[in-house]
């Protein structure tokens, strides 16, 4: 593999992202709402309303004992906020790498098809494998960068609220370490693989994005399962899910290879 070519395509694709409003808007809005606005509002509301915020939601009280809550968090509200921000929010946070990967992948493949630039690339000496690796990197790298930047924003805003109003760090569970280092890359890889597969057949950007966006549904199922107490997102569960997703991504990436050849790509233009 020729890494100079791969690097050139990755740099070109990443630069191209900023020129497409359909890509930039979700890349800014989704992390901002999901990782800054929503957690800040929920935390502030919970602290402001106190127990009234969770009154009647007996299922929430039921799941509290299932999670390791630091000893200094004695009130129910503090415990619930801690569980929400560290455990419930973890699968919710995965929506960020999924959405970003889906949007960038659709732009990188279908976007190039629509702008008629992919054909020019196919006529160069770049091999199909180099092109695929470049496209995957051009999706994965910015998706992870934005995911980590989003977490940084999330970490800062929630802990700022916690320290100001309660004198405690709210986001500090060790579950975030495998969550960020394993789960986030795994869901990003899965989302980008599905997106590239879909993009190979899709005729336009919207079609690719909508179809690939269905990857977000299993994440919402995970969120629901966790809120209802069916699944507890503790360290072993995060490790198991990350491993399963990485395995699924590996299998999917293997399936894209043979499909990502010149003839197939050009015949869908």
């Amino acid at each position: 593999m020729n890494w100079s070519r791969i690097r050139a395509i990755v740099q070109k694709d990443i630069r191209e992202i900023s020129t497409n409003r359909m890509v930039v808007v979700p890349m800014v809005v989704v992390p901002l709402i999901l990782c800054v606005v929503l957690p800040a509002v929920i935390t502030l509301l919970a602290f402001k309303l106190g127990v009234a915020a969770v009154q009647g939601a007996s299922f929430i009280e039921k799941i509290i004992p299932q999670y390791p809550v630091p000893a200094e968090l004695t009130s129910t509200v503090d415990s619930i906020v801690y569980i929400f921000l560290n455990y419930t929010f973890l699968p919710f946070f995965m929506v960020v790498p999924i959405v970003i990967s889906t949007v960038i992948a659709a732009n990188a493949v279908v976007g190039e098809k629509e702008r008629k630039t992919l054909e020019t690339l196919l006529y160069t000496p770049v091999t199909s494998r180099e092109l695929l690796v470049a496209k995957e990197l051009a999706v994965f790298l910015p998706a992870m960068l934005i995911a980590y930047a989003s977490f940084a924003g999330y970490f800062l805003i929630t802990n700022a609220i916690g320290l100001t109003l309660r004198g405690i760090m709210l986001v500090r569970s060790p579950v975030w370490i495998p969550g960020l280092l394993l789960l986030a890359p795994a869901v990003s890889l899965l989302a980008l693989s599905v997106s590239i597969l879909v993009s190979l057949k899709a005729k336009n950007f919207m079609e690719a994005q909508q179809t690939a966006g269905l990857v977000v549904l299993p994440v919402l199922v995970l969120v629901g399962a966790q809120i209802s107490g069916i699944l507890v997102f503790n360290l072993p569960v995060v490790l198991i899910i990350s491993g399963a997703l990485l395995g699924a991504s590996y299998l999917l990436v293997g399936r894209i290879g043979p499909r990502f050849n010149r003839e197939r790509v050009i015949s869908t233009m």
Binding site: R15, E16, R115, T117, T120, Y123, M269
Partner: peptide, 14 residues
């Protein structure tokens, strides 16, 4: 070899 095709474009933002 090189190919210049009717619909094959280059990058307009560059």
């Amino acid at each position: 070899t090189a190919t210049v095709a009717e619909l094959a474009q280059m990058y307009e933002h560059m």
